[in-house]
Every structure is written in structure tokens, then in C-alpha cells.
């Protein structure tokens, strides 16, 4: 893979420079899961049509999370849908994505004491360049007005539904910016907009969950 996995870029955009997540982890988990599925779909491994998944290519992508998902989908005799798989992947994707970024040297573990007593572990970017690059693709798509590729459109859509627009540091009002990000994703109805629509539904359902 020439470019980093989509979920790596989303993870970097979704955290500040101290490694603090900008949104609730239940929402972020679903977003990262959407990024994993979209990566597989956009690389031709997976076909997503009307909520159903079909594996077309079993060759590894180089991303551990995505590569471990393909055999599980193949074993699924019930032919479960995108919603199911998003929830399944979301269960541990946050920790796995973080681990992957640490292994790649993008994030570094930092332990501090809060108020001099409680220790707190965060994963800060080791270098600001990957964060800037991750944001740059989305910023470019919004500002340039040119048609981005499907991967960039997917990232735009995910940033939009996860309400991470403030992380782009664009001098634009929030509402129109989110609308623009969603409009970019809609240029690719399948699979980008379809998966992002399900991500949005699951974010709402998580918000009204009885237990979490």
C-alpha cells in the first residue's frame, strides 16, 4: 500500500496534538470501522452493494486490521450486512488502530501525571508531518473545489459525519463546511456514501444505547 490506511488518517485527524480524542470513542470507533471497510472496498477486495458484502480479492493489503477481517467475512454463512460488520469491527478498532500507528512509529506513548497524582497515558504524534498530510487531503478537497478521488472523498465524508471539521482549521462556518464534506462523499454513492450513511445511523444508535 502506497498510502497509509484510511483509518490511520482518520485516527490522526480525530486527535489533538496531545493525543486526546476530539469526539466520543463510541462514535470514533464506528467511524474507524467505516474507514476499514471503505479501504477494503476501494482497494477492490470487497464489494459493498445495498448493504451486503462480497469478497472479491483475498490478497493482503498490508494493513493488519483489514487483512484479518477478510477471512472472518468469508466464514460468515449468514451473509450479514454492513451494519453488523461495522459494529463488529468497531468493538476493538480504536485500540488496534492506535497500536498500528505506534508500531509504525507515527505515535509515541507518553505518560504524565494529572494534578501530580493520577498517571495518564496518551499517544501523541511523534512527528507532526503525518497529521498535516492527513488533514491536507481533506482541506485540499474542500478548498480547491476539484473532484477528489474516492479515498479522499471517503475521508471527507467520515470527517463530516464525525463532526471533526474543527480539526481541519479552515476559516469556514461549521454548518456549510460539514455540508460540503458530505457533498464530496455523495459524489461516490457506492460504496463511499452508502457506508458513511450507515456510520451516521450507528453513531445515533450508540448515543441512545442503554448500556455501553
Amino acid at each position: 500500500m502506497n498510502r497509509p490506511p484510511l483509518h490511520h488518517d482518520l485516527y490522526l485527524i480525530a486527535h489533538d496534538q496531545t493525543g486526546k480524542p476530539l469526539i466520543h470513542l463510541s462514535s470514533l470507533g464506528v467511524g474507524l470501522a467505516g474507514a476499514v471497510l471503505l479501504d477494503l472496498a476501494l482497494s477492490g477486495r470487497l464489494e459493498i452493494t445495498q448493504g451486503r458484502l462480497a469478497v472479491y480479492d483475498r490478497s493482503p493489503t498490508g494493513d493488519m486490521i483489514a487483512d484479518s477481517l477478510i477471512p472472518v467475512i468469508l466464514k460468515d454463512r449468514d451473509n450479514r450486512d454492513v451494519k453488523f460488520w461495522l459494529k463488529k469491527v468497531a468493538e476493538d478498532v480504536y485500540d488496534r488502530a492506535c497500536g498500528g500507528l505506534v508500531a509504525a512509529g507515527v505515535l509515541t506513548r507518553v505518560t504524565r501525571r494529572r494534578m501530580g497524582v493520577m498517571s495518564q497515558t496518551r499517544y501523541e504524534p511523534a512527528d507532526v508531518a503525518p497529521v498535516v498530510r492527513a488533514r491536507a487531503g481533506v482541506r485540499g478537497a474542500v478548498e480547491a473545489g476539484e473532484q477528489p478521488d474516492a479515498r479522499c472523498a471517503a475521508l471527507c465524508g467520515l470527517v463530516g459525519v464525525l463532526r471533526l471539521e474543527s480539526a481541519l482549521h479552515l476559516a469556514q462556518p461549521s454548518g456549510p463546511l460539514v455540508n460540503r464534506l458530505r457533498a464530496i462523499a455523495r459524489e461516490y454513492p457506492r460504496p463511499v456514501n452508502e457506508v458513511i450513511g450507515v456510520v451516521e445511523t450507528l453513531i445515533s444508535e450508540n448515543a441512545i444505547a442503554l448500556y455501553r
Binding site: 469526539i23 453513531i203 445515533s204 448515543a207 441512545i208
Partner: peptide, 20 residues
């Protein structure tokens, strides 16, 4: 609200806090 039987603003959630 999701079924469009109440005003849609009641179905809006905060992504940041994951709360309705």
C-alpha cells in the same frame, strides 16, 4: 422523530459526547 412523526431536531445527537 426518525420515523418523521416528531420534529427531526429531537433525533439529532452529539457526536462529540455521543448523547442525544
Amino acid at each position: 422523530a426518525r420515523d418523521r412523526q416528531l420534529p427531526s431536531f429531537l433525533a439529532k445527537v452529539s457526536v462529540k459526547r455521543s448523547v442525544p
